[in-house]
Design a protein around this nucleic acid. Structure first.
Lengths: 223, 223
DNA sequence: TTGTTTATGATAGTATTACTATTACCTTTG
DNA sequence: CAAAGGTAATAGTAATACTATCATAAACAA
């Protein structure tokens, strides 16, 4: 089953036919997470995917218009899932500073197993976010895709955290900028730590990425 | 002519045959800057480029193994140019804080015409940097490309600015992380301002991107 | 001057990718 | 049991990303 208890609702423009509604659809999602994280988005094709899940190219095209739309779906799912996790982690936390600290940690930390949505491998999905997510918007169709709602979940996450920032410092001028800088930045830094360490600072026995961004955010808004 | 006064030396692994050495090579560079900024990297092909410059696909392949290598060359050229501009802007400035401020402005501001290298349209090249540069490293060949030296110029820029930061605050733990966050972040913010404004803060009559990052850097290292 | 290298162009061809269309089977549901 | 919907199998197209071969013209060297 795609999920055991909770369903995350994804914008219906991000698919042709809802992959959560059938067995084949679920196999397409889990299979694409495997293959994209293994091969990278450029080397990933619907032909390889259909072979991987013992189906056919034509069948995959019934769910998604192409691999770009599939990636957009995965990213949308990821942000919808993060929104859900964010709500969980902040329940009953009153102090806005503590709420903000927890939010930044959630956004920047490494993802570990989450068994709530059994068909999705969240660890692999997080790797896809790090290396591939920016390709969803960094192209000439971005305005069209934006109108289709591909980025709504991401914007909502940014918005919610911006609101916490404004609670702490109502006169801070750049809350959205700060939050999207932290999100995109932490993805890049994790990638750099793995492949281009001279562009980051890897510190033994410390999650430098998370500590750096927590510190950065508080220095910026509390100055 | 490719340049009127100064030549920027580019790593010879980033091409098959040096495009700066022939007329056709120079047309390939200026033509690809036009076409990539116009079409986006995904829709750019060597066939379209060869038609644009009235040459043939096969001839373009004599200079670059493929469009990925061409993009890597352009990005390398850009960072080599920024290194040169950085050196110019910091000459005779003694105060490390002022050096840092000028460096951050250089990295984050919009690029305007520079007539030094007449064959290169730096404004279009900067647009390519914003939307396409991360695609050079965000793929499965990154380790191979790193060994070929595709990122040396970028690393050097990051390194030079990190050194200024350490002059100001020798105990700061994350100089490289801060600098690469600022560079990648400012590119993203300019893209967001244009296409996804809810992810950033656009402020009337202010270059919000530059002011945000200058403030961010000083708050972080002087806290 | 002749010969030789080098650069480019012209042409052709291959494998892969990104799709589209058609048909037919096999379930589920009514 | 029949209709409807979902899926598989097959085939085909256009574009992409190359590679190879040959001709020609300019450059340069003997």
């Amino acid at each position: 089953m795609y999920q055991s208890t909770i369903t995350l609702q994804i914008n219906n423009n991000a698919f042709v036919k809802d992959p959560a509604s059938t067995d084949l659809g679920k196999k397409i999602i889990s299979g694409s997470i495997d293959l994209i994280s293994e091969l990278g988005f450029e080397n990933f094709t619907f032909k390889k995917l259909s072979q991987h899940i013992s189906s056919t190219e034509a069948s995959v095209y019934r769910y998604f218009n192409g691999k770009h739309q599939l990636l957009a779906y995965l990213v949308l799912w990821y942000w919808s899932w993060q929104k859900y996790r964010l709500a969980l982690r902040l329940t009953n936390i009153e102090d806005p500073k503590e709420r903000l600290r927890r939010a930044i940690i959630l956004l920047t930390e490494r993802v570990s197993e989450d068994s709530t949505f059994s068909q999705i491998n969240e660890i692999k999905l997080h790797l896809i976010l790090i290396s591939e997510a920016s390709k969803v918007f960094l192209n000439k169709d971005v305005d069209k895709d934006n109108q289709l709602g591909y980025f709504t979940q991401y914007k909502e996450v940014v918005n919610r955290i911006s609101e916490i920032i404004l609670e702490i410092n109502p006169s801070f001028k750049y809350p959205h900028m700060l939050v999207s800088t932290v999100i995109e930045g932490s993805h890049h830094q994790r990638f750099f730590a793995e492949h281009l360490p001279r562009l980051t600072n890897v510190i033994e026995g410390e999650d430098a990425v998370t500590s750096f961004y927590v510190e950065l955010v508080f220095n910026e808004i509390e100055k």
